[in-house]
């Protein structure tokens, strides 16, 4: 097991190096760069352009130099100094911009995932064990609707209802007065007051999918002879269902839990835009459209790293819960 983990980590390093190169090339691909378009914009508006500042930035990031020099300056900055570069648009170091948003995003997504599983697994198991019953049809219909309705749409509808019926403005994660405040207990309480709505919206979509997955997996496992063996032991039906088929049917959850890491950052961007959440999605979208290359590059790199890391976590989890995989390695 330990050898397996070390081997997997060893394989991650070259993957990450290649990924960082590819992300860098991708963010360099569009013609022009932020500095040029920034200067052009300023000139158009008749403003003075501080050429000294532009030259300093160009020097710092090796703009205009060959791409491998730029790449090296970028990557060595991240690894050696923890310097993710400067966001051209926000005029702030990238690291000052992303971490708070990252923390909020992870917090929001984890709650949504937990809520979604907490609902989806019992409902999915119930649907499977009561296949073709009325509640099963009802849950199936609901989950098809849930899976088929875009999250931003649900968000809009809920916002509209909240506004119309209760006069509430449910957008955002904080009330206005706490928006720029430093963290405090009161700010956290304020966050908790706002967080339910994005959680409901985000969880709805994934709950619908998870119900279908759970139902299908459990249905598959219910047919297996080991379930009959358990029944022949005289176990209570409910107990044996949760101990045997559900336990095996959960394996796909463990094998995909790692992927959710990456979707933490980029996922639910539309919902976040609609609800004006201070998460990473909208910021990344903006960085990409405005060619804010270091911010966009940092997001791309983080995203890829989390994907690789997530896959590793999934594999370790799966090996931990499934002895067949553990022994095979």
């Amino acid at each position: 097991m330990i050898v397996y983990i070390i081997k997997r980590i060893g394989m991650m390093i070259p993957t990450l190096i290649i990924i960082s190169m590819v992300s860098f090339v991708i963010i360099q691909l569009p013609p022009g760069d932020y500095l040029t378009s920034y200067a052009a914009n300023l000139r158009q508006e008749g403003d003075m352009v501080d050429t000294d500042e532009l030259e300093m930035l160009a020097e710092r990031y090796g703009l205009g130099q060959p791409i491998y020099v730029q790449y090296w300056k970028w990557v060595s900055g991240i690894i050696l100094r923890g310097d993710w570069g400067q966001s051209m648009e926000w005029r702030k170091p990238v690291k000052d911009l992303i971490w708070e948003r990252m923390a909020l995003t992870v917090f929001l997504s984890l709650i949504s995932i937990l809520v979604s599983w907490f609902v989806a697994i019992p409902v999915g198991v119930f649907s499977a064990t009561h296949q073709y019953s009325m509640p099963d049809y009802l849950f199936s219909a609901l989950s098809f609707i849930g899976a088929g309705t875009p999250g931003f749409m649900i968000a809009l509808v809920i916002m509209w209802i909240a506004m119309r019926q209760f006069g509430l403005n449910v957008g955002g994660l904080f009330s206005r007065e706490y928006m720029v405040e430093p963290w405090s207990l009161a700010k956290f309480v304020d966050l908790m007051k706002h967080v339910w709505m994005p959680v409901v919206v985000i969880a709805l979509g994934s709950t619908a999918g998870s119900i279908r997955t759970t139902r299908a997996n459990v249905l598959d496992e219910l047919q297996r002879p080991y379930v009959e063996t358990a029944r022949a032991k005289g176990l209570r039906e409910r107990k044996l269902i949760w101990k045997y088929p559900v336990r095996v049917a959960m394996n796909p959850f463990f094998s995909t839990v790692g992927w959710t890491l990456a979707s933490l950052i980029s996922g639910q961007t539309l919902v976040a835009v609609v609800l004006s959440l201070q998460t990473t999605g909208p910021m990344m979208l903006r960085a990409l459209t405005s060619q804010d290359m270091y911010l966009a590059g940092s997001f791309l790199l983080l995203l890829s790293t989390l994907t690789v890391l997530g896959t590793l976590i999934s594999d370790i989890l799966l090996a931990w819960v499934d002895p067949r995989i553990r022994m095979g390695s």
Binding site: R224, P225, Y226, E228, A232, D322, R324
Partner: peptide, 13 residues
């Protein structure tokens, strides 16, 4: 006792 000893035992217990 069942026919398929392979599948009649739980794979994860």
């Amino acid at each position: 006792v069942f026919q398929e000893p392979m599948t009649s035992l739980s794979p994860v217990h």
